[in-house]
Amino acid sequence: MCQHKPPCPSAESPDREAALLLASHPEQGWSLLCNHVLLFEDTGELLPNGEIIAPHRPVSAAVVAA
């Protein structure tokens, strides 16, 4: 469990990416958050329960305008 005050969002929370960083391995393309979410450089995620969240990069304004 998170010991931070205020506590980090849970892995099930929509704002789970706001959890504090525990380990960063940019050379391998991933980071581990306090809520045990693996966050990948392509913005994909692996949740502690094994659920996969597909990459979700924001769409650029140039693409939206076209």
Rank of each mutant, 00 (worst) to 15 (best):
Leu46Arg: 07
Pro9Gly: 09
Pro26Asn: 05
Thr43Cys: 02
Leu33Asn: 00
Gly50Trp: 03
Gln3Val: 15
Glu45Lys: 06
Asp42His: 10
Glu27Tyr: 01
Pro58Gly: 11
Leu39Gln: 00
Asp42Trp: 08
Glu12Tyr: 00
His56Val: 07
Gly44Asn: 02
Phe40Lys: 03
Ala61Thr: 14
Met1Lys: 13
Gly44Lys: 05
Arg57Trp: 02
Ser60Met: 09
Pro48Ser: 12
Ala54Ile: 13
Arg57Cys: 10
Ala65Gly: 14
Ala61Gly: 07
Thr43Gly: 00
Pro48Gln: 09
Gln3Leu: 14
Ile52Tyr: 09
Ser13Asn: 05
Cys34Met: 05
Leu39Ser: 05
Ala18Lys: 15
Pro6Thr: 10
Thr43Ile: 00
Ser10Phe: 09
Glu45Cys: 12
His36Lys: 10
Cys8Asn: 02
Glu51Lys: 06
Leu33Ala: 01
Cys8Tyr: 01
Asp15Lys: 12
Asp42Val: 07
Pro14Ile: 14
Ser24Lys: 11
Thr43Leu: 10
Asn49Gln: 02
Cys2Phe: 04
Ala66Asp: 02
Asn35Asp: 02
Arg16Phe: 07
Gly44Ser: 15
His56Gly: 07
Ala19Ser: 10
Val59Tyr: 09
Ala18Thr: 11
Pro7Asp: 08
Gly44Arg: 06
Pro9Phe: 13
Leu20Val: 13
Thr43Tyr: 01
Ala61His: 10
Glu12Thr: 04
Ser24Leu: 12
Glu51Ala: 13
Asn49Lys: 05
Ala65Asn: 13
Pro9Ser: 10
Glu41Cys: 07
Gln28Arg: 11
His4Ser: 11
Glu41Ala: 10
Glu41Tyr: 00
Ala23Thr: 06
Ala11Gln: 03
Asp42Phe: 11
Cys8Ala: 06
Asn49Glu: 07
Ala62Phe: 13
Ala65Cys: 15
Ser60Arg: 11
Ala18Phe: 11
Ser60Pro: 05
Asn49Phe: 01
Gly29Asp: 06
Val37Ala: 00
Asp15Leu: 11
Ala18Pro: 02
Pro55Arg: 00
Ala65Leu: 15
Leu22Asp: 11
Trp30Val: 01
His25Lys: 08
Glu12Ile: 02
Lys5Asp: 01
Trp30Ile: 03
Gly50Arg: 04
Asp15Pro: 03
Val64Pro: 00
Glu17Arg: 14
Pro26Ser: 06
Ser24Met: 08
Ala23Glu: 07
Leu39Asp: 02
Pro55Gly: 00
Ser31Glu: 03
Ser60Trp: 07
Ala61Ile: 12
Ala66Ser: 13
Gly44His: 06
Val59Phe: 07
His4Ile: 10
